[in-house]
């Protein structure tokens, strides 16, 4: 066990835990987007940043990747942390306003407007689907392509991957857009799983046998 100070509270936590795990275990909430208990930590959305150390040398680190250390001083909701999270949420809202997850975050942090050029993207590149596909489904059907502003998630060459088992787990875990079933726009689908379900879910008498994680499902709404 190691002893750390979280928001002024001295607590003993298990060695090897991350700050995020320790804080949540004790009961301090930390928002996350790219984190999932069943997947390896990724540290990309930066929403989970916390302040460690003491001023003036304190700094922000992503709590999902940082292991607890003996004597570490952690603040999960300092002014600096909240300010950073609010800016990240503003950036998220500017890119992906339709996501319920992001809308909830914005309301929790009191972010009411965003000041950038509005974009409507389907994906925030949190990588949950990519890790889901490779770590839990052992498929590696989808992955990241390109870099910088050109980065995207998809299959090699944008054609249906022959290792995709159409399991739909990628859609299930996506935080940006719960309405990701793209049966009607197959070219926009990540893995084309929904478009390639045989028979397609729109033929509803077959529906009971299908694996569908969509809630609500666009196809179901249409019917």
């Amino acid at each position: 066990m190691v002893t750390v100070t979280i928001n002024g509270l001295d607590v003993s936590v298990e060695e090897g835990m991350t700050i995020l795990e320790a804080a949540r275990f004790i009961g301090f909430p930390i928002p996350t987007l790219c984190y999932h208990e069943g997947l390896s930590p990724y540290g990309a959305c930066r929403l989970c940043v916390v302040e460690i150390g003491e001023a003036p040398r304190s700094r922000l680190v992503s709590s999902c990747t940082y292991p607890v250390e003996e004597g570490l001083k952690i603040r999960t909701a300092s002014k600096r942390v909240v300010q950073a999270r609010r800016m990240i949420i503003e950036l998220l809202l500017a890119s992906c306003p339709q996501s319920k997850t992001i809308q909830d975050l914005a309301s929790a942090y009191g972010v009411r407007t965003q000041r950038f050029k509005q974009e409507y993207e389907d994906c925030i590149l949190c990588g949950l689907c990519v890790r889901m596909c490779s770590e839990q489904m052992m498929a590696k059907a989808i992955g990241f392509r390109g870099r910088g502003t050109e980065r995207s998630v998809g299959t090699p060459f944008d054609i249906q991957s022959d290792v995709c088992r159409l399991c739909g787990a990628c859609m299930h875990i996506c935080p940006a857009c719960q309405l990701r079933c793209t049966y009607n726009e197959p070219e926009k689908a990540i893995c084309n799983a929904c478009a390639n379900l045989r028979p397609p879910c729109l033929e509803k008498e077959q529906y009971d046998d299908m694996m569908c994680y969509m809630d609500p499902c666009v196809a179901c709404e249409i019917k």
């Binding site: 990724y42 930066r46 910088g148 502003t149």
Partner: peptide, 21 residues
């Protein structure tokens, strides 16, 4: 920088793009 950011970390990818805009 917006072209050279690897794109993994969200604030870097979007932040450089927004600063450029």
């Amino acid at each position: 920088l917006k072209g050279e950011s690897c794109g993994k970390c969200f604030p870097c990818r979007k932040g450089t793009q927004r600063m450029y805009e």
